[in-house]
Nucleic acid binder design. Structure first.
Lengths: 203, 203
DNA sequence: TCGAAAAGTGAGGATATCCTCACTTTGGAG
DNA sequence: CTCCAAAGTGAGGATATCCTCACTTTTCGA
């Protein structure tokens, strides 16, 4: 069986220059995807934005889909890592801190990786990839919450994780809406809602 | 100035058959958009699905974008109308009823118009149209909530409307996720969260 | 009945994007 | 220094979709 899935790189970067190219290409792809969406971005444009030629782009990513998936994987790993850092000290946080951190998580992550949310939420590539990532994120959330509320059942914590995840998404959406009036107040209110909910879960 | 915006129909249906065609075309377009996304759906496919020819499609919709916008407008009007029906009796509802109805609103609407949420939330047409609709929906929500909590300021009710809107979206997302385990429990939990939040707003 | 306007048709022109390929350049190991 | 694989290049083939247009068919009021 020829190992040919759409995530395969045609040629793995081996020298330093290759790795730099790949990084530049992925970054350019991210920028294009945010600005124009998946179908709207052009392989030519991605290459140009990375200071490369189309040929060079296709050396490392055999397909536009492969490019998008590689980008998603990179982002996904980053999210899991950042969420992992929540684990240890989080047990000592107040409800207010929990609400603030959870609401802020996607918002802050989005500032560093603007393409993540749109890519994972609503882009028409292998939508299955986005689903996988959302589910794993939910599982991590569940574990995180369970640590703080060990008296609850797994089912309860799963449902709670779902709700918290949707609220995180909501906060990110508020942050992302262009020209939204009263954004700060709305974000604080979202935080209140999160706190009110967590009170029921943890209290 | 020739009245040429992308919402224009090339020819307004005048006979009954024309109106039926337009309806069929819009319905077909909705189905295609849900299944394949905006860029993924083909004008030829829409026409075929409606039992028409491409030529016929272009008689009424000069552009794919015009088709999508017309569909959005149709959906938008339906949402406003349905939300309007909330107005009168809602003053007498309990918090539980409020939570249930608000969480269920988009879910039920989506069952009848599956393309609405994806179209308004995350499709790359004139994204400005989706923004407008979301904002108007938010305003209606604000008015609805204000009726029940007249003692709050406009700013407070606006922020509350934003939060409620995000939670409604969240509920719809839960409902829409394919193959989600524990969906019913998650939806109930979302309802609990809504109720907990409304308690702060109305209480 | 008749004719004009509405509705319908589908081949194909214009365009755009994905991706290939034959070739050149680069840089580091021996 | 030499040599070779990695890295780089960009014109153009293949394909696909949007939309036009010249034409036919249907409908309906006079």
């Amino acid at each position: 069986m020829p190992s040919q899935n759409s995530t395969d790189v045609r040629r793995k970067p081996q020298r330093q220059r290759g790795h730099e190219r790949v990084a530049a290409l992925l970054e350019a792809a991210g920028a294009c995807f945010v600005e124009k969406g998946y179908d709207g971005t052009t392989m030519t444009e991605v290459a140009a934005r990375a200071g490369a030629s189309i040929g060079s782009l296709y050396q490392f990513f055999p397909t536009k889909e492969a490019l998008a998936r590689a980008l998603m994987q990179q982002y996904a790993q980053a999210v899991y890592e950042e969420l992992g850092k929540f684990a240890e000290p989080s047990a000592h946080w107040s409800l207010e801190e929990w609400a603030e951190r959870l609401c802020g998580f996607l918002i802050h992550f989005r500032k560093r990786h603007p393409a993540f949310v749109p890519l994972v939420e609503s882009m028409p590539m292998p939508a299955a990839d986005g689903l996988h990532i959302r589910r794993r994120l939910r599982a991590e959330l569940q574990a995180l919450l369970a640590r703080r509320a060990p008296h609850r059942s797994d089912e309860q914590m799963y449902a709670a994780a779902v709700v918290v995840q949707q609220m995180m998404k909501g906060a990110a959406a508020i942050q992302a809406e262009p020209g939204m009036p009263g954004r700060q107040a709305a974000l604080l209110e979202m935080q209140n809602a999160m706190q009110a909910y967590l009170h029921g879960v943890f209290g």
